[in-house]
Simulated scan of single mutants.
Amino acid sequence: MLKFYYNPISPNARRVWLTLLEKEIAFEPILMNLDGDQLQAEFLTVNPFHHIPVLVDDGFQIVESLAIMDYLEAKYPTPSLLPKESQALAKVRMVQYVTANELFPQIVSLIYENADSPQFLQAKQHIDKVLLFLTEVLDNSLYVGSEQLTLADIVAGTAVPSLPSLGINLNHYPKINGWTERLMQRPVWQKTKLSADDFEQFKRRVRILVKLRRRKLNQGNKK
């Protein structure tokens, strides 16, 4: 049976968790305490970069959420979460990478920066650009690139629904708001929805990681 190392507050882990559940794949969940489990010697043999998620399939270890999702899609093609048509597939891939590279870093800024700082304002402006882009890509489809759920919906769906809790009003983006509501009505998404306490824990985790990263950068610049 597949072994899945995860913690529900991790957006990257939740992508894989949702994929497993939507595809109804049997797996053994291994819950990681992010205050130290990921640094233990036993886990480092699974992922030397001490990150989650990790999927282990009969000794084959896969790291990085997008790679794991592609693996699951290839090995368990039913139900399909990737369209075959070239433009639809391009939409899925674009939304996956725009979410990872353009949206999520701005969510981190909203969590970490002071609300009156230039960085906070810049993050909100960039998120507006992302949401307008997603609106254009979604167009009138129920899901990204398809009338059925895709991997892009799972990736973006672990980020966009958190925006109202960070001061972004999705009512200004009607198509995105409707898409988010469709996702949240799915049984799997209701089952895995973060509680308010979990989301606060996620924000605390983000602040700690950003602070540590900036401290390392400052120490490196002083050398």
Rank of each mutant, 00 (worst) to 15 (best):
M1D: 06
L2Q: 01
Y6D: 01
I9C: 01
R14I: 06
R14A: 10
E22S: 13
K23N: 10
E24M: 10
I25N: 00
F27P: 00
F27A: 01
E28D: 11
I30M: 05
N33G: 11
Q38A: 13
A41H: 05
A41M: 10
F43L: 03
L44D: 06
T45C: 03
L55T: 09
D58N: 15
G59L: 06
G59E: 08
F60T: 10
I62Q: 00
S65N: 05
L66R: 15
I68T: 02
I68N: 05
D70M: 07
D70C: 06
E73T: 07
K75Q: 11
T78I: 15
P79T: 09
S80R: 11
L81A: 02
P83T: 05
S86I: 13
Q87A: 15
L89Y: 13
V95H: 01
Q96F: 05
N101L: 12
E102P: 05
V108W: 05
L110I: 02
Y112W: 14
N114M: 11
A115C: 08
D116Y: 06
S117Q: 05
A123Y: 04
I127M: 09
V130S: 07
D139V: 09
D139M: 09
G145Q: 05
G145W: 00
G145V: 06
S146N: 14
A152F: 04
I154N: 04
I154G: 00
A156E: 02
V160A: 03
V160S: 03
P161I: 02
S165N: 12
L166I: 09
G167P: 08
I168P: 01
N171F: 11
H172S: 15
P174V: 07
I176G: 09
N177D: 13
G178L: 12
P187Q: 05
V188R: 02
K191S: 08
K191Q: 14
D198A: 14
F199Y: 12
F199G: 00
F199M: 10
K203E: 06
R205M: 12
K216Q: 12
N218Y: 03
Q219F: 08
G220C: 11
N221T: 09
K222T: 11
K223C: 11
